[in-house]
Design a binder for these strands. Sequence first.
DNA 1: TTGTAGGCGTTATCAG
DNA 2: CTGATAACGCCTACAA
Lengths: 318, 318
Amino acid sequence: MLNASGPVSDATRRRIERIATRLRYSPNSAARSLITRRTHTIGVLLPDLYGEFFSEVIRGIDVVAQRNGYHMLVSSSHSEQQALEAALGAMRGRVDGLIVMSPDLDQRRLRSSLAACSAVVLLNCAANAPGFDAIKIDNVGGASAMTRHLLELGHRRIGFIRGAAGNVDAEERRRGFRSALRRARVEHDATLEVPGDFTESGGYRAATQLLARSPRPTAIFAANDSMAIGALSALREAGVAVPAEMVVVGFDDIPIARYTSPPLTSVRVPIIELGERATERLVQALASDRRRKRSCETLETALVVRQSCGGSAAAGTH
Amino acid sequence: MLNASGPVSDATRRRIERIATRLRYSPNSAARSLITRRTHTIGVLLPDLYGEFFSEVIRGIDVVAQRNGYHMLVSSSHSEQQALEAALGAMRGRVDGLIVMSPDLDQRRLRSSLAACSAVVLLNCAANAPGFDAIKIDNVGGASAMTRHLLELGHRRIGFIRGAAGNVDAEERRRGFRSALRRARVEHDATLEVPGDFTESGGYRAATQLLARSPRPTAIFAANDSMAIGALSALREAGVAVPAEMVVVGFDDIPIARYTSPPLTSVRVPIIELGERATERLVQALASDRRRKRSCETLETALVVRQSCGGSAAAGTH
DNA sequence: TTGTAGGCGTTATCAG
DNA sequence: CTGATAACGCCTACAA
């Protein structure tokens, strides 16, 4: 009976509260959630936990969750459906709602896995269909803008390091890249597209492959910053000057991007905001017990021109 | 009655389980933990969530927790005692045990905050006193080894970028640095020690300060890799070649360290193992209901020589 | 304003 | 081995 309800005299309340703190009393959350059917906990399901991207997302979630009195139950390594469903099952009953980031699952699998869940916010997922709240980032727009920037700088042979196979973000970024080339009527050399996996080592390997092409590309566009950093490292070892001899750009604008040598031109993604918005939406959904209509929100991306692309060409504003 | 206890015929069990999954039945964890007094959840309290270091720690915890059937309740931003206690209170009853990383609190505060908690594993904390299980890393040894390496490469004017004020790791690393200088009978110029905060921007600012010194230091030792990366960036902007004109080294050996330009010489800290060991210890403590004796474990560090220090001098093995 | 009964979903215990 | 029942700690509601 330590909630604010019930008309209690101010003095008694104060007295009770004092005694409570003295006795180190705190209500048993299990008993409480047994009857209220609320755990005040948000489940966070991530495909992975490696790299600055995910930690920034978590940071965003943590801030808003704490502000709203929610706890954060985190679980990762769910790029496969089986793992996701296992985690989903394990969280059932322990959380009031879920934030699911599962860019590796296709829409059908995702929907079947999430069928039983009530309050869910999808982060960068394939299932943008109605029925789920979702937040995504404008991958296509960002990748197009970056590609246009490279084209305006005069590059025609652009190497592209793809993201993980089957990953939605990877797919959309590639689409943005290709569509910008097409629209500029630049012939697309398919051999300049090499596979990657969103890690530094993957970017390193991919860049090494691109260096072996003849003629070499004059620019490398990596589908995320981690791979761009790996690519920078490969070029450095190969003695290829950036941006003088070859240009390198990335995607995400993770915090270290501005500290690489040279500082990395990238597509800014509001990573923290991604986590924050997802949490706000979820908390809001949890507060209004009526079924609201679900919607998909897309966060804008923006070109961030630094030195690794060689030119700060006014192009950025186009 | 869906636990393994009680002798039930194999066939019936199978039948029940089939029906259970068909009905999407899953036991209510709140009710269960109300009676068993177990939540199967581990609380993780971190001072912050920024940077690769913490995300790697979480990754280690997540892996072992999942393997042992535990969930992970994460909460960050607890560098101050008040915040820590608030989080501690909020987690009471929701977790079976805690992993607390609180390098910014002194031993007294920490002990008073944690007095009520039963199962706790301390990570890089000041309280190495008996009464708590603890895991730390050999900061002093690592910083000494790095300093000796620089000395053997001939450096006498070594700039040191300190970690956050009041932080245990920061303090120990500085101690290792100083003791190595002292033992080598190298006069320590106190003005070459500049404050930092473990962030890239802090390292950038600190390096800028060091560049203004006259005569300049010939080497910069940053108390962590993030600051070393910031320093590399500052030197690059100032047109100072690394390692030719000035040497830069860090501490932690975070994953990107090998991908900086030039690759960063650092002190390898088994970050993931830190999280893993902490979780193993906690799970073990939770399993044995008897009070075992608490102990403090120290993980070894190792010098990792890359190009940012100029020489791979056999010194590394001393 | 204060006190008391009932029930949340599970496990544990104890007769049958 | 099976089946009924108490108990976990809290909240809600209703009675005093």
